[in-house]
Amino acid sequence: MRPFKFSTTADSNEVSKILIANPHARLLGGGTNLLDLMKEDVERPTELVEVGNIDVMKIVSPASATGSVVIPAVEKNARTANDPAIRENFPMLSQAILSGASAQIRNMATNGGNLNQRTRCTYFYDVAMPCNKREPGSGCGAMKGLNRMHAIFGWSDKCVAVHPSDMCVALAALDAVVKVQGANGKQRSIPFTAYHRLPGDQPQKDNTLQPGELITAIEIPRNNFAENSYYLKVRDRASYAFALISVAAAMELKNNKIVRVSIAMGGVAHKPWRASVAEKYLLHKEATEANFKIAAANEMKLAKPLEHNLYKVELGRKALVRALMQAANGGKTI
């Protein structure tokens, strides 16, 4: 870990100034990913600004007239997951958060930090290896390497890494909005699916934040998914492991007919992957296993597996069906 200056401030404008003045400055939330990467010498910030005290990042907004819920950027994952309003209205988000990492890490990690965590690709983590995300132009170690954990959708010849978050998969399916603030207090809202990027030619950029911008909150619009949603995670061991495949599946049913549906997948792409092909197929259809199977097959037809992750196509298909079945079953195990 390289030496760095540590500072703490309540003033978000001050933070934006620091971030603009010093491209090697980073915000420190729970530290669960950033400190890990700093010890690996992957991240080498010269300045850390603690986010815990920043005014605009901890505002808890009252429930809005539209029924949307706003979760502050610095709130801990565990608190958000256990917020009674989240559990009741967006149970899939609670499940997604609780499927990630461990109880200790969820007590530390912030919501904003969860969005900004970086890939767990081993080639990204090992500074002896080439990685375009860590060191643009050095090549992609995973492309022809051990890529069992890597992307099957949306990858480029520069990067095949996947985004590691579970929480973000649920947020993508919930059409959340990322609230950000830049220099001079300038605010904007980014639809969740536009927040993270596909790697393209610039895999070093994980998201669409501009210099000096920080996440202040995440807004989740009201929906009628609570009855019929589920977050499914498949992994190499029973707990405390990143997803091989995960699925956030939510639907609104009227007499078993799907009037609204939203599906996102984790472990498959550089960003949470909205399964829009499957969604399109299912809309206005009956919530039946047969329909779920067709939708899943249609979605997975677009997959482009690498040498070691062909299994993800089959696993993804089955995970989509299972998650949809369980969502249709009131979230209960089938």
């Binding site: 729970g30 530290g31 400190l35 890990d36 010890k39 565990a78 200790q104 530390m108």
Partner: peptide, 22 residues
């Protein structure tokens, strides 16, 4: 690196990892 839990302590009532806490 936050991968084993051996460093768990309790801060303000919550269990956390002291290896990833500055």
């Amino acid at each position: 690196h936050g991968q084993c839990g051996a460093c768990t302590v309790i801060i303000d009532g919550n269990r956390v990892l002291s290896c990833l806490t500055l």
